[in-house]
Amino acid sequence: MADGVKPRVKAPRTASAGEVVTIKTLISHPMESGQRKDGSGNPIPRSIINRFTCAFNGQMVVDVTLEPAISTNPYFEFEAKIPEAGTLQFTWYDDDGSVYEDSKPIEIS
């Protein structure tokens, strides 16, 4: 796991069956684009989160392919439809092979 990568997700704890809810996700990551050069003029190699997915009870909500133009500490806001009680699963995939995860349970009110 790259150093100090920390997700931060906003999701409601409850929803009515079939409700559309707003999800906000942040994760700390430098998103090294591959365009920068170090002090000696050598290019710093690209190292980014290249994919983010959100699924609910195994069904896909959104699947995002990230390129280096996504800002440091990637942010995504989107909507999810909640048919039943279950768990939102968030997964971020790093160029270096690391996988970061977070999950939020949702109950039906």
Binding site: K6, R8, V9, K10, K24, L26, I27, S28, N73, Y75
Partner: peptide, 8 residues
Amino acid sequence: FDNPGMIF
């Protein structure tokens, strides 16, 4: 949850 400073 919009404020990236809050991750830190």
